[in-house]
């Protein structure tokens, strides 16, 4: 017998790591909740422009949104592949997810720089401050997710990713989908409801 109580014997029959991660996601809800609240209570309070409708590019962001949705699809396919022990497709879907994440981030970098060129910075007005802090925090989360995905991909290349430790991919997936649903909210609240 080993002391490995956490993985082999649990009171609720649930994986401890998964439970901890769901608690973490719950906690993240309040992090983004606070940021979105700040955005909403400061909406329309900027004393100088540019204002949201001057600058937000809906067609461009729709593509980013589509990109992130597709990355979520790749992610679940990667998990399904790992669970059935199909390492070959796991590698493909993992790297595809990461690449779509990188594509999203490049889009955000482009968006931010073009906003700065059009005169919207952190310091310009409340819209700039709340917008950049909210979407920037989301972008930072995507960055962490990309690093995580690439790490799993390297593990897959090393042949270390088996059906037995599929839960590590599942948890990474939970994180990735959570970042996606936060974007679903941001896309609506920030971009579409101006």
């Amino acid at each position: 017998m080993t002391i490995a109580a956490a993985t082999h014997r649990t009171s609720m029959g649930l994986d401890s790591r998964k439970m901890a991660f769901w608690a973490f996601i719950g906690s993240e809800c309040l992090l983004f909740g606070s940021l979105i609240s700040t955005y909403l209570v400061y909406k329309g309070r900027s004393v100088v422009g540019p204002y949201p409708h001057d600058i937000l590019n809906i067609p461009f962001t729709s593509v980013s949104t589509f990109d992130l949705l597709m990355s979520s699809l790749m992610m679940v396919l990667a998990l399904a592949a790992v669970q059935r022990g199909d390492l070959k497709w796991a590698k493909v879907w993992l790297v595809a997810t990461a690449l779509l994440g990188i594509f999203f981030l490049s889009g955000q970098v482009y968006e931010f720089t073009s906003f700065v060129r059009e005169g919207l910075t952190l310091q310009t007005n409340l819209f700039g401050a709340t917008f950049f802090v909210l979407t920037g925090t989301h972008g930072a989360h995507v960055t962490v997710g990309v690093v995580w995905l690439l790490t799993l991909w390297v593990r897959a290349l090393q042949g270390q990713l088996t059906a037995a430790n599929a839960v590590t991919v599942e948890i990474c997936g939970l994180y990735w989908h959570f970042v996606d649903v936060i974007w679903i909210v941001i896309f609506t609240v920030v971009y579409l409801i101006q």
Binding site: M12, G13, L14, K18, M19, W22, A23, I25, G26, S27, C29, L30, F32, G33, S34, I36, S37, L40, S72, M75, V76, E170, G173, L174, H177, F178, D180, V181, I184
Partner: peptide, 30 residues
């Protein structure tokens, strides 16, 4: 996304509680 991609529809109800509780709290706060 939460039900199908994050598997809450099939997974333990307790995970739904861990996620939904704070989510509602955040919504109430907003």
């Amino acid at each position: 996304v939460v039900m199908f991609y994050m598997h809450l529809k099939m997974d333990s109800r307790f995970f739904t509680f861990l996620f939904g509780g704070p989510l509602l709290l955040g919504l109430g706060m907003t």
